[in-house]
């Protein structure tokens, strides 16, 4: 009588890759809702476009690589990439840009490096950077938060704009109730500082509510909540997120203490732009991060420092994507040099 053979262990946990990815996507929901609430329906349309593009790109490339399409789609990794791209780009970005970004993320960044598990760079962030450097104008056109906006972005308006059906420029969505066009808080802050204003003066602008950007604070808070749920569900480990947040806090804190006039407060750094999204959803992508515990703390710290440095001294108002990509590059080195001490070995082995 013959039996089936397999290597031990014969039992395993039920938490599989597809479930991990699924949970990541679900934990993004609070953030997405906040984003929709403050910046209109555009985000939802973007998610729709991105998901369709990413999944079809994934299917097509798996077909080309003669691999199982079903396996690739069922691991949900393309889905997560799609949603991350969609929430990262401005809500009213033209559809073709989203498509280009998603296609680039899946085909170039992910599959040309060997598919899931083999890519060096975070696909979503690479796509974001591609779009940012290619179409800087559209990519910095963020809509005004609903509390201040003169025009709300309805679902039909979002469709019309994204698919470029209406001829009206995007600007009327950027015009606040008081008639000024609005940039993102970080952008405003940067511009103001470069124009010689002090930070406290800048914070008086209507895009800020005194401490942080209007709307952005809540969006970040929602992502933080989602991230904490992920931690609770053990979908991610805390090291990278804590590394990032601590590094940003420490760096901006030092900067703020040294010269509050030219530096944003830690509060502003932590709750503006994509900080929380990055800390919990983007940087924690295991494929492109360091793997050891200490390595992850370092990896997170590198991202945090880079975010602070680029935001404060660089040319771009937000720096999440660049920071993540630069840290991605460091990950193999971190893994190589930071190895845990194995059982029975003395430190250094």
């Amino acid at each position: 009588m013959a039996f089936k053979i397999a290597s031990s262990p014969h039992v395993s946990t039920s938490l599989q890759t597809n479930k991990v990815m699924q949970r990541v996507a679900l934990c993004l929901i609070p953030g997405i809702l906040a984003q929709v609430y403050f910046f209109g329906m555009g985000t939802l349309v973007q998610i729709l476009i991105a998901v369709i593009t990413c999944l079809s790109a994934e299917a097509a490339i798996m077909k080309l690589r003669n691999k199982s399409i079903k396996n690739a789609l069922s691991d949900n990794s393309a889905l997560v990439t799609a949603v991350l791209i969609a929430v990262a780009i401005p809500p009213l970005t033209p559809w073709w840009m989203t498509v280009i970004g998603c296609f680039f993320a899946i085909v170039i960044v992910k599959h040309l490096y060997g598919g899931l598990g083999n890519n060096i760079f975070n696909p979503a962030m690479a796509a974001y950077v591609l779009l940012l450097v290619s179409f800087p104008l559209q990519m910095t056109n963020w809509v005004a938060p609903s509390e201040l906006a003169a025009n709300q972005v309805s679902i039909t308006a979002a469709f019309a704009h994204i698919f470029e059906l209406s001829t009206a420029g995007l600007d009327h969505f950027r015009i606040a109730v008081d008639g000024h066009t609005m940039a993102t808080p970080l952008d405003t802050f940067k511009t103001d500082l470069s124009m010689g204003m002090t930070s406290s003066e800048s914070l008086q602008r209507n895009v800020f509510d005194g401490m942080t950007g209007v709307g952005w604070f809540w969006v970040n808070l929602a992502y933080l909540a989602g991230g904490l749920i992920m931690l609770k569900l053990k979908v991610i480990r805390w090291h990278i997120s804590v590394g990032i947040l601590m590094a940003i806090f420490v760096c901006s804190g030092i900067g703020f203490l040294l010269n509050p006039d030219t530096h944003a407060s830690p509060m502003l750094h932590l709750f503006s732009g994509g900080t929380m999204l990055c800390a919990f959803f983007i940087a924690t992508d295991p494929v492109t991060a360091a793997t050891s515990t200490r390595g992850r703390l370092l990896f997170g710290a590198i991202i945090g420092v880079l975010i602070f440095v680029i935001r404060t001294y660089g040319g771009y108002p937000d720096a999440v994507a660049f920071a993540v990509l630069l840290a991605n590059m460091c990950a193999p080195f971190i893994d190589y040099y930071i190895r845990p001490r194995s059982y029975g070995h003395r430190a250094g082995n």
Binding site: G117, P286, T291
Partner: peptide, 14 residues
């Protein structure tokens, strides 16, 4: 016992 499933790509989750 665990069902026999195909080995998938390592996502380096650690």
């Amino acid at each position: 016992i665990a069902p026999d499933v195909d080995e998938k790509a390592c996502i380096r989750c650690g």
